[in-house]
């Protein structure tokens, strides 16, 4: 459909090829070709139920694709023999509902996977955790439990938890949708910093401002297909497809 896509797969952080996903008889993804270059920020928008989350969750195999291939950092994660756990450790993921581990302190939330998955020594893990917490502005919360954090703080801790694994790329599934409006800014600020540092990011979002300001590419999905993609300012200002126009007229 689009010809301005980067076709050099060796520089691709995420490369999705002809992805189909069924839930039972329900075809939720109907042949997706999708691409995120290294260091790029790609935002995915679309109406509820269009398959945005499913696409994102296929990238780290939380959902198993029915057919198609997905390459992550040059390795095929959909390959039968792929070490999915090791690949996931290189893909940070941030959920709408935070999903912090409630029985662990903030610091432990950040160190456990470093130790158990990456095999880092405790001291090293703690040091990295503290550096990462400082980055999201929550150093003073390291011994707090998640129940005592606000939504905005929880989501920043969740981002820090993913970052502490030193991932190659980050996936975000509506990271600000569960937050009170006044807390959205803090989380977006952290994400902007990340983007400025050159982190590869795939962001499912309803924050058009973020997409316009930070995104290198904007993808509009509807009913399991990518309807339109391109430069965010261009797509938001002059949507070419009727469905995109209809969607944007509702949310803008």
């Amino acid at each position: 459909m689009t010809t301005d896509r980067i076709t050099d797969r060796t520089t691709a952080a995420i490369d999705v090829q002809d992805l189909h996903k069924y839930f039972g008889a329900n075809e939720v993804l109907k042949g997706i070709d999708f691409h995120v270059g290294t260091g790029q920020v790609v935002c995915v928008i679309g109406p509820s139920g269009s398959g945005k989350s499913t696409l994102l969750r296929c990238v780290n195999m939380l959902e198993v694709p029915t057919s198609g291939k997905i390459f992550v950092a040059g390795e095929e994660i959909t390959d039968r023999d792929a070490d999915v756990d090791q690949l996931r450790a290189r893909i940070g993921m941030v959920f709408q509902q935070f999903n912090l581990f409630p029985h662990m302190t903030v610091l432990r939330n950040l160190t456990i996977a470093q130790e158990k998955v990456k095999g880092r020594k405790k001291d090293e893990a703690v040091e990295i955790a503290r550096t990462t917490l400082a980055k999201v502005g929550l150093s003073e919360k390291e011994s707090a439990y998640p129940a005592h954090l606000s939504g905005g703080q929880s989501q920043r801790v969740a981002i820090a938890r993913a970052l502490a694994m030193s991932p190659d790329m980050m996936l975000f599934d509506e990271p600000t949708s569960a937050l009170d409006p006044e807390l959205v800014g803090d989380v977006l600020a952290v994400m902007k910093d990340l983007a400025a540092e050159g982190m590869t990011m795939m962001v499912v979002t309803h924050e058009m401002g973020f997409a316009r300001e930070v995104g290198d590419n904007l993808v509009f999905m509807d009913d399991g297909v990518i309807v339109e993609e391109g430069d965010p300012r261009e797509v938001l200002a002059n949507p070419r497809h009727e469905r995109t126009q209809l969607f944007l007229s509702k949310v803008l």
């Binding site: 780290n60 939380l62 756990d85 090791q86 690949l87 996931r88 450790a89 290189r90 893909i91 940070g92 993921m93 959920f95 509902q97 999903n99 912090l100 581990f101 409630p102 029985h103 456990i112 996977a113 158990k116 998955v117 990456k118 969740a158 938890r161 993913a162 694994m165």
Partner: peptide
Amino acid sequence: PKGQMEAARSLGMSHGRAMISVVVPQAFR
């Protein structure tokens, strides 16, 4: 909640590790 297992898996933990470190301790509570 299912999100707990998903968060643990997304960090690269195996199913067994996620059970032991994340799910079972919460279940016992």
